[in-house]
Nucleic acid binder design. Structure first.
Length: 507
RNA sequence: GGGGAUAUCGUCUAGAGGUUAGGACGAGGGAUUUUCAGUCCUUAAGCCGGGGUUCGAUUCCCCGUAUCCCUACCA
């Protein structure tokens, strides 16, 4: 039977990177096996604090960004549509009814108050917490129902609970962890249908996984403990559960499940910061999976599809190392087509106010032309010089800022840079000579600039560094940056001379 | 309190009875060079503890310890 896997996110906002990784694993496995990758929305939790309807767009965006497109989902539909659980409520209530009829589940009329009191006393006595199965007894259940009926004057609300077997064990066959057994008597009579008519995860997942013909459930390790309940729902419904695959959790530096406390974890943040899809993809895959003895960590997506097997899954939690991600992102930035990086950088420059917004579609041609020459061409000349220094795209604004900002000495100049180089004795002579000789250059190239600067240095009788550094500071306001000559070239003759002149006037 | 899982450099990991315990990020040093970055070379850094099994355990088993996860009308 061919592999069918699913990614089942909930719309709670921008996806957590852990979920993104789960999506990647499912997608890779499906692609490696030539199987089917299904994405369905688990929107059965309607409580306002957790239900974020717009989250669905973030989920879609994350899948598109990474290129892990499903074979079937709510966007394109598919043979098992709909792929949104809130649109399948009848299926779940049918299943619940079937379970009640067969005695595998029962209605529970316990109030939240009773449940809370029960839990409180269990905790106070140091006893294991869990539902006391009060309503599993038909007599007690009916008594409670009548009591509430009388008090409330109408049929009381109820939930449906799974009647867990009271004996025996549930064996979970986990592909990465082997067989795990759980004692049934320790499992709760889980609520499977809520009083609002929505199913809980356990019912909905079992029903849908069965309906979709899912063969492997690949999901985070945080689901491992509750897996026997899911398995029991399958059994109760008379179905064979899929195979389970529980990759390890992604944790923070403190070893706890990665969350906001550890820094940004949401997909949207990585997008804003300027992480490349291939870097995120590559990095996330390696958090819980390894290509074995290959001793490599840089893989293209096709290479990963080729290599991705469940045997490569690791089993201990992985700390999310932002530094390593940055390194990898820098690596991919450097290996990208510069044009692509430039295009991705422009929005950051615009947002930082370094370059203006492009003229609208109905702008006049001369205006468009001016924008192309003054803004785009300049950006295209300047950004490539900083590409090897970028770890994330958003850094571009700091990196190329000096190219765009208006500098007026000492405004905009780095203090330490001034202290170090704007007081050297030969400064005025140097700047004067540069302004004059640069002005006379007919060809403004890195080579011609270098030749000019070198000869000025020789005339002044100072070491190369003694002319390089002051020149850089005068022209850029800082001590770091790309090679001086390409920097001046990119800056342009006019801008360079203007800046040098402004400095000369003030020192 | 109960249950489950996990345990190799600081971090991600390779290893599947005998290895100089390998690679990567990060850190240190060096080279290149006009700075930074990059690139190249290089150094330090690890098998949780205790019992077994075995001629021999990082590796297999048990116990302990530690950590994490679950323990909701959330997923």
């Amino acid at each position: 039977m061919s592999v069918r896997v699913r990614y089942a996110p909930s719309p709670t906002g921008s996806p957590h990177v852990g979920n993104v990784r789960t999506a990647i694993y499912n997608w890779l496995f499906a692609r490696h096996e030539g199987g089917t990758f299904i994405v369905r929305l688990e929107d059965t939790d309607r409580s306002p604090e957790r239900y974020v309807p717009e989250g669905i767009f973030d989920i879609e965006a994350s899948l598109r960004f990474l290129g892990t497109l499903p074979d079937a989902w709510w966007v394109t539909g598919g043979p098992d549509a709909p792929y949104v659980q809130s649109q399948r409520l009848e299926t779940y209530s049918d299943a619940a009814r079937k379970l009640i009829d067969s005695g595998k589940a029962y209605r529970c009329y316990c109030t939240r108050e009773r449940l809370e009191a029960m839990r409180a006393s269990q905790q106070a006595e140091g006893k294991p917490t869990g539902y006391d199965r009060h309503c599993r007894d038909p007599k007690l259940r009916e008594a409670l129902r009548l009591q509430r009926l009388e008090a409330e004057g109408q049929e009381p609300s109820s939930v449906v609970r799974l009647a867990m077997p009271l004996e025996g064990v549930t064996i979970l066959h986990d592909v990465v962890r082997g067989d795990i057994s759980y004692e049934n008597r320790l499992q709760d009579d889980q609520v499977i249908l809520k009083s609002d008519g929505f199913p809980t995860y356990f019912l909905a997942a079992a029903v849908d996984d069965h309906a979709f013909g899912i063969t492997h459930i690949i999901r985070g390790d945080d689901w491992l403990s509750s897996a026997p309940k899911l398995v029991q729902v399958f059994h109760a419904l008379g179905w064979e559960p899929p195979k389970f695959v529980h990759p390890p959790l992604i944790v923070g530096p403190d070893g706890k499940k990665l969350s906001k406390r550890h820094g940004a974890t949401q997909f949207a943040w990585f997008l804003e910061q300027g992480y490349l899809p291939e870097a995120l993809f590559n990095f996330l895959v390696l958090l819980g999976w390894s290509a074995g003895s290959e001793n490599r960590e840089l893989f293209s997506v096709p290479e990963l599809i080729e290599r991705f097997t469940l045997e490569g899954m690791t089993q201990s939690p992985a700390v999310f190392d932002y530094e390593k991600l940055k390194w990898m992102n820098g690596h991919y930035i450097r290996r990208s087509e510069p044009g692509r990086i430039i295009g991705m950088c422009l929005p950051y420059l615009r947002r930082a106010g370094l370059i203006p917004d492009p003229p609208g579609p109905d702008a006049k041609d001369p205006e468009k032309e001016a924008y192309r020459i003054n803004v785009l061409d300049y950006a295209r000349r300047v950004i490539p010089l900083e590409i090897e220094r970028m770890k994330v795209l958003s850094e571009v604004t700091d990196l190329v800022g000096f190219f765009f900002k208006e500098l007026s000495y000492p405004e905009g100049y780095d203090e330490k840079a001034i202290a170090k180089w704007m007081g050297v004795p030969h400064l005025k002579q140097l700047l004067t000579a540069e302004i004059e000789q640069f002005g006379a250059l007919t060809e403004w190239t890195a080579e011609s600039i270098e030749a000019t600067v070198r000869s000025i240095g020789a005339d002044l009788g100072v070491k190369f560094g003694e002319v390089i550094h002051p020149t850089r500071v005068a022209a850029t306001g800082q001590t770091v940056g790309p090679g001086l000559f390409e920097t001046l070239w990119a800056l342009g003759k006019e801008r360079t001379i203007n800046r040098l002149r402004a400095v000369l006037e003030k020192v």
